[in-house]
Design a binder for these strands. Structure first.
Lengths: 151, 151
DNA sequence: ATTTCTATCTATAATAG
DNA sequence: TCTATTATAGATAGAAA
């Protein structure tokens, strides 16, 4: 029974792959149901199966269709916020790690922000800046910060 | 710690519900990724989260705000008159700060390398990266985290 | 002080080879 | 089926706001 740790790669053997798919497909749909029941949220999984004529989805097809339709109608930003697939999953992980790194750079942050502020003001006269009020300058600084990926 | 068997019903307690959602959401995404990798199929999960993370807003830095406020409060005549002096002052400050930043960057070289790596990944699609490399990538990320002593 | 969020730990439940 | 592996409930602690 010495089972090796799960290797996360394509299962070449068709029979094993089919078995794994059936088990995991079932487990996945169960998980989707559970999270909707426990947290009272809307969720759906769409799985295109090579073993079935019809792809399995949860919940019923009309409900999923409704959800996806609503999803398409959402503004672009809301889409990216709410849609999660294997691609955005990885990005979320990266974003999360980036946040941690940003935390590590906290001691540098003050100096960097000050740097940006000075860069904004460097060599500029008041009329160059064309500042109406404080918020304008704050906006400029924020833009520069984003370019530096400091946030 | 009496852990009871999972009762599959709405979790009334908001805190527990949120925790459960976050954990299961993460687990669900992992499962979706795994089944796509193992069985080479297309799958996606759409989850409407009631616990949206608040957008990261650049906090107005106290120091910056203080300086800008001081600048704004100057009488109009003094502003223009002091610009030259202020520019000189700013340049000196910039030089000092740039030296400090160079030092800090040298000290944080490892972190920066990691940051660069993530920057390279950012904005790439899944097809840009090779699918089979995803697990390796996750491994690399975890290794980097351990090296950074974040985990 | 208060609250809210996050991370981590461990025992148990659930999954998968 | 059987059990090693994985997921997660519940608790706790500490950080952040």
């Amino acid at each position: 029974m010495a089972r090796r740790k799960l290797r996360l790669q394509y299962i070449a053997n068709a029979c094993s792959r089919r078995n794994t798919f059936k088990k995991r497909n079932k487990g996945l749909l169960k998980k989707v149901y559970e999270i909707t029941a426990l947290c009272d949220i809307k969720a759906a999984a769409v799985i295109y199966s090579p073993f079935e004529v019809e792809s399995k989805v949860f919940p019923s097809h009309p409900e999923v269709h409704q959800m996806l339709t609503r999803f398409q109608d959402m503004p672009e930003m809301d889409k990216t916020r709410n849609m999660v697939n294997q691609e955005t999953f990885l990005r979320q992980q990266i974003d999360k790690i980036q946040e941690k790194i940003i935390k590590l750079k906290r001691d540098n942050q003050e100096k960097q922000i000050t740097q940006v502020m000075f860069d904004c003001l460097k060599g500029k006269t008041l009329s160059d800046l064309e500042l109406k009020d404080l918020s304008d300058l704050t906006f400029i600084i924020e833009q520069n910060l984003k370019e530096l990926d400091i946030k």
